[in-house]
Write a protein that binds this DNA or RNA. Structure first.
Lengths: 169, 169
DNA sequence: TCAACTTTAACGTCGCGTCATCGTCC
DNA sequence: TGGACGATGACGCGACGTTAAAGTTG
């Protein structure tokens, strides 16, 4: 029986998750998450009395991002470390942006953030370009096979005898 | 002083390369190529008197393909082994295709090859889809930053006071 | 209390990189 | 002849998987 949210309670604990819950949410193992901590990619927002790791929402997002970069883009943790530095810097930029009203300062901050996003786009696009080229190759092969199959069913004008069996698939 | 090719010589050796030459051509190391052999992905077409590995053109293509699948698509050697089995089967299909004249048999062969190509396409496309989604995300972020930058230079209709500094970048 | 979860520590695995030692090629 | 290249170990590393032994949580 879940009680309805009490509006008087100020929600002092911002939803901390234990390592296994985080692992399930981002599709990783607890070992992987601990390893990311070993090499300095993340740090749990807190620890429990008995030293259990406790993660908040931003930790979860960070880990999810690490997994995406590795699984989907195949980027090494060393390179991910660089990208995360750029993202941390962008987070700092957001703070700095809020702290000033000067349009010139704000423009510089935005320009810096754009450069950092561009670096990430460049890395990902290079990967995607090569991958898309491979897929295009496979589609060509598939199309050639389909053409041959169609030619079989529609013998066509017959430009030669059966001693030259056209090309093999 | 390279003699010009003798047309009487039947070229009995079909251009065999040593491991280092192959490595240079496909952008791999000799160690990697030997490892692919260790786990059964390839076998050199021949060995020299002193047991040097000697590769022919099809070996080179196979190795180049393995590298593409690993570097560009980030596929494990175990999965590559599966894909190569499909490709070997397609090569066998090409032979079988040449050995028959029966349109029904040929249609079956072509259909089998198409299925195998489709499997490869499915694997690669899944990777590409996720990667392209990540890139789209980054582009969105970049666009939002650009919009903010443009808004700075063109203050616009002013829908509110400076106490609400719009949203941070 | 107890089952399920967590901790640190340590060794195993994959896909190679990197010697070391010895033989081969031209 | 020698100097580059190759063969077969064997160990190292990144990014975890797995198991072990002991503590924590609800």
């Amino acid at each position: 029986m879940p009680a309805e949210p009490n509006p008087a309670e100020p929600l002092p604990t911002p939803q901390l998750l234990r390592i296994q819950e985080v692992a399930a949410e981002v599709g990783a193992t607890t070992r992987a998450i601990r390893y990311y901590e070993e090499i300095g990619l993340i740090r749990p927002a807190a620890r429990s009395e008995g030293d259990y790791r406790l993660y908040d929402a931003s930790d979860v997002e960070r880990i999810r991002h690490i997994r995406e970069l590795r699984d989907t883009a195949g980027i090494s943790l060393a390179d991910i470390s660089q990208l995360l530095e750029d993202e941390d810097h962008r987070a700092a930029n957001r703070e700095a942006y809020r702290q000033t009203e000067d349009p010139t300062a704000r423009a510089e901050i935005l320009t810096d953030s754009i450069e950092r996003v561009d670096r990430a786009i460049a890395i990902l696009s290079a990967k995607a370009d090569r991958l898309n080229a491979m897929i295009a190759d496979s589609h060509e092969r598939r199309q050639r096979l389909l053409d041959k199959l169609a030619a079989l069913e529609t013998p066509a004008p017959d430009p030669g005898s059966s001693t030259r069996p056209t090309r093999a698939p």
